[in-house]
Amino acid sequence: MKALLEIKDLHASIGGKEILKGVNLVINEGEVHAIMGPNGAGKSTLSAVLTGNPAYEVTSGEVYLKGENLLEMAPEVRARAGVFLSFQYPVEIPGVSMTNFMRTAINAKRAYESKEPLSAKEFLALMREKKKMLELPDKLNNRSVNEGFSGGEKKKNEIFQMAMLEPCLSILDETDSGLDIDALRIVAEGVNKLKTPHNASIVITHYQRLLDYIVPDFVHVLADGRIVKTGDKSLALELEEKGYEGL
């Protein structure tokens, strides 16, 4: 089994306040890891630090993606190297069309991989293919990025972008929050369809519900900035029953 992501004793803070206090985690190709934990445990901080959000400061520790030092890469380089974050709150960008945005992103990744850019025709064909695969409506294309989208549409749009960019490591940050059961099913099925033996996912969630649809290989409990317990999917059920205090 090949290690995709290695996190070693990671400490991070925001505004001088330490949030991550020594996280250790190894994720191999083909694995799905769920990270659960109470509010304020550092779940979203972990996703922000892995993607290079400038609001957070890494104070010590190391992170490697396929053996390369992830923390030294700019956020856009991490993305091109295959780290994808499905945002908890996808950002609205008025005036920037989805098509323009997505094509710029795809071609930036292709340039990083020394591939030729996609022509307009190839790009549109790829959009259609991915939309069909995810059973998404066509109407998203000509709108501005996330502008006026409902909560469910925004999350579906995140998964669509994930399908387009084919990341090796997807981080789904509270993807289930604010979704009704139908939207949750579509999003989860999308994630499952995109799973291959060579990519991996981190599913950050507060509730067990999403894990009925995206079945994790490992469940980690993050509390007060550290992983305090690791188990298989039964741990999620146990948490649901007993709560985090019951650990």
Binding site: A74, E76, A79, P90, G95
Partner: peptide
């Protein structure tokens, strides 16, 4: 937050700025 969102999709910061200014 829009700049970071675009960077997270692989768009470099200068191009992301240009897209926002153009919009």
């Amino acid at each position: 937050s829009a700049l970071f969102y675009m960077q997270q999709r692989g768009i470099d910061k200068e191009k992301a700025r240009q897209l926002l200014v153009n919009a």
